[in-house]
Design a protein around this nucleic acid. Sequence first.
DNA 1: GCGAGTACTTAGCAACTGGATA
DNA 2: TATCCAGTTGCTAAGTACTCGC
Length: 783
Amino acid sequence: MSISEDTALVDIQKTANGVTVAVKDEVEELPLALIENGKKRKKTTDQGNPKPKKKKKDIKVEDNGSLAAIDAGTAKDNENTLGTTDSPAATPKAAKKKTKKEPGLQTPTPKPARKLLSQTPAASQETPSRGRSATPKEEDEEEGDDYKWWEDEKFGQGPERWQLLEHNGVIFPPPYEPLPSYVKMYYDGKPVNLPPAAEEVAGFFAAMLETDHAKNPVFQKNFFTDFCEVLAQSGGCGRNIKSFEKCDFSKMYAHFEKLREEKKNLSKAEKKAIKDEKDAQEEPYRTCLLNGRKENVGNFRVEPPGLFRGRGAHPKTGKLKKRVYPEDITLNLGADAPIPPPPEGHSWGAVKHDKSVVWLAMWKENIADALKYVKLAANSSIKGVSDMKKFETARKLKDHIKDIRADYHKMLKDPIMQNRQIATATYLIDIFALRAGGEKGDDEADTVGCCSLRYEHVTLSPPQTVVFDFLGKDSIRFYQEVEVDRQVFKNLRIFKKDPKKPGDDLFDRINPSILNKHLQNYMKGLSAKVFRTYNASKTMQDQMDLIPNEGTVAERVLKYNAANRTVAILCNHQRTVSKTHSVTVGKIQDRIKEMEWQKLRFKRMILRLEPKEIKKDPKYFAELSDMPKEEMLMIIHAHKEKQQQLVARKFANDNEKRKLENLEPFDEDELKTRLETLDETISMYEKEVQTEIVEPTRALTVEKLRGQVEKLESRISATSLQLKDKEDNSEVSLGTSKLNYIDPRLTVVFSKKFNVPIERLFTKTLRDKFNWAIESTDENWRF
DNA sequence: GCGAGTACTTAGCAACTGGATA
DNA sequence: TATCCAGTTGCTAAGTACTCGC
């Protein structure tokens, strides 16, 4: 094939006066990384490195950071924690406030500086109570139930995200409680006395002993390194612990299992009491006052320490995620708002009054050195307005998509390599819903998106078939064999051309930033991710247009789910097939078969009562010959097994009850008698199969039997639908697209147009989150 | 122009819960 | 009524995208 038009590529250069010109570049087809003295940043690393990655700054995890503070709980240790320049707590003010008293960290008794949930900040100052005693009027104003932010055109506009913000801070996890003295880790067959800090870390691992994580060698190695470090810092244990293989966590695991079991076996009242207490403790943190209105806070609990569970082949999986202290936390709230008291003996790292952001608290975690935020709940006005804006931006793309597509098709042949890459990437993002694909560091899992696709992720098979095979977000495999536009195929071949080899970037002249800058030219707010939202919602709309307005509610829900599934597949939202999937499916299939058999029995009973019925309605009885005798016998056999188990369980339960009532338990003869009765019934069924005669029981009439058949038929159809849905959904996760990509107004339209209660389509949480859509959409709305 | 830092959305998994079923 | 299991929710990891300062 001639590729002359493809090879006529040029690179771009900027002249001294900043004007971009296209120049024929002798080496323009070389990957940028190989162009000596290249004009552009070298994106790939040394040749032969299979994973070219951005050189990130060295992330140094504190050797004796906050952990030391856990270990000894001394002020000195605490200073170690705070002595890092990064930490907000490193401010002189915070350092000064450090205290020596620190046996552990107690979430403060929730006594806000003043009553939080009042309309006017000043008015509430005199009631430092955790309870609420609002008057009906106050209640109205506080709850903000009647405030519909989506009807307020000014809401969410401008750089300031809020005007007034009051909250009670965050809840800290309880301090570590050492295990009973008889629960130990064993090393080389002997029990070890671990100091509490090390015991805590060992416990993290022990609790996960039966999970896949604990069987992962990287996880084990990272855990063990950090465990040894904590052990050394906390004074050691008098033993030379140096081999993970010699550590035995089984006793600790058994202890945790026992606790779990005990918790499970608590009485209803005990469980309720625990829950009530927890609710009461959390109550002050659940809500905040935003612009004078009560709103829910999302993650008000600080993440507890534990072992980092990285997804996929994460190099840091298993590392110790350290305990977060008040000194690590920055609060954000209104300048006039009272500052919630930190836990006794502690101080906050910093307090900010930044109206341009929506987080209430923030800290830096030690694994990736990333920031963690406490934010408002999904049903808050702030989240709602940004959600609505997101969908509106995607909707706006409708007006531009034709031009954008026409442009990128034209640009696929652009003589400038960078433009050709922009066009090709846009095509892939638009058509296959790929993510943008930013660069990643060596200390992260090796996953990619569009711009970070490498040579080995794309296989070309002429004339225009492409196989994509790579790990995307969350290390979820993206595998697709697809036909692409001929020019896209040609371009991909150029992008893979020699000397490129496995490990090299396919798109070596662009990154998400360059791509997004290009997209902004078409529309304000347009970025790569908008295509996913647009295509997901557009697909849903198109699918909905194909659904006929007929059938039962259950059938319509199924159609909705099928449309939802199309979107989920487009977005590659997968889930691991549950371990019990095949068993569950088998059980449902058995249930359906049994119901079918029962149905046939009822029909035979009808004929026993009124043999003439078969002539009156031969169609009704036609299915009597559908089920072979062998199949019936198999069903009866399975039924027998199930019943035997039930009889045995019932027998055990009855005896348990009798024991409580101080009655003599039934003896084994009783069980035998019950099983014999079952055997008789089974024999009767088997005889029915041979004779094709079923004797009606008791006072059954033809009408009653027809009613029974009808009931079974509807149960069979409902169960079959359930089975189909289950099988279709086994590997596809519908939730993510429903939560993030499908404009909720489409679901509301479906609910109204097809008369399906919204409760069947949105869970309570989703109804809360999408209240704006539910309240503002009529059935004629279109995406 | 670039990298680092920051703020936000998107994501799957696991724990929990409550309704269906026997 | 107890048990089971599917649906739901919470948690937190992992993305994207924008801003800022050099």
